[in-house]
Amino acid sequence: MHVPDGFLDPATSVATGALAVGVVALAIRRAERELDDRAAPLAGLTAAFVFAAQMINFPVAGGTSGHLIGAVLTAVLVGPWTAILCMTVVLLVQAVLFADGGLTALGTNVTLMAVVSVVLGYGVFRLLTAVLPRTRGGLLAAAATAAFLSVPAAALAFVALFAVGGVAGVPLGAVAAAMGGVHLLIGVGEAAITVAVLGAVLAVRPDLVHGATHLHQAAPLQSRAEPVGAGITR
């Protein structure tokens, strides 16, 4: 669900656009430092993954189904700066190729879904991983909480923008309650899907999970008396 053109007043659109441009420029620098010249192919393929993963319909409690938004999942998988770039590119593609989300509201959508979701979600994730036990369960619990909170946080950020630059005379409390309530439910789905996907990646390639680097322990150097390979019978 993307903000269309004309929903917020020009001043708010320009301000969120400027914020989005600034954060994306910073993210480009940081992601290049994280990935150097691998940035383009890896972030591009991750963006393609996010785009494809948003098409999967997951069953969530009570016969309902939902799809992934993926801000926290991507941040935990590839790091927050690369995640901001991936989400921005996905939003850009949705705006210009699918008319989903207005062109003049692109800055607002990037601010809500790439900046607020990733920065806040990843912040919560890092805070919790510092506190929770350094285990797979602790990591998944931290990611679940972060994914859950990232959805209502983006919704409330939208309500705040709406309060500043939206339609006058609308009871804001009611809008905040409705948006917050609906997005709490969506957040539960997001958390369940994030944990399911992250658990699957941790099981096969834990080294690919950026947020799990603290779980790895460098294997101690072993010296063996007999030559390695002497006993191989395969």
């Binding site: 691998r38 192919p41 890896l42 591009g44 393929l45 991750t46 393609a48 993954f49 494809a52 993963a53 999967i56 997951f58 069953p59 969530v60 992934l68 998988l77 590839v78 369940a192 899907i193 944990v195 399911a196 996907v197 992250l198 658990g199 699957a200 990646v201 099981a203 096969v204 390639r205 690919l208």
Partner: peptide, 19 residues
């Protein structure tokens, strides 16, 4: 949910390795 999670998980691994 578990099965679809594994699907999306291996999709990520395959995409990243392809990258």
């Amino acid at each position: 949910l578990r099965v679809l999670g594994a699907t999306a998980g291996s999709l990520f691994v395959r995409s990243y390795e392809r990258g």
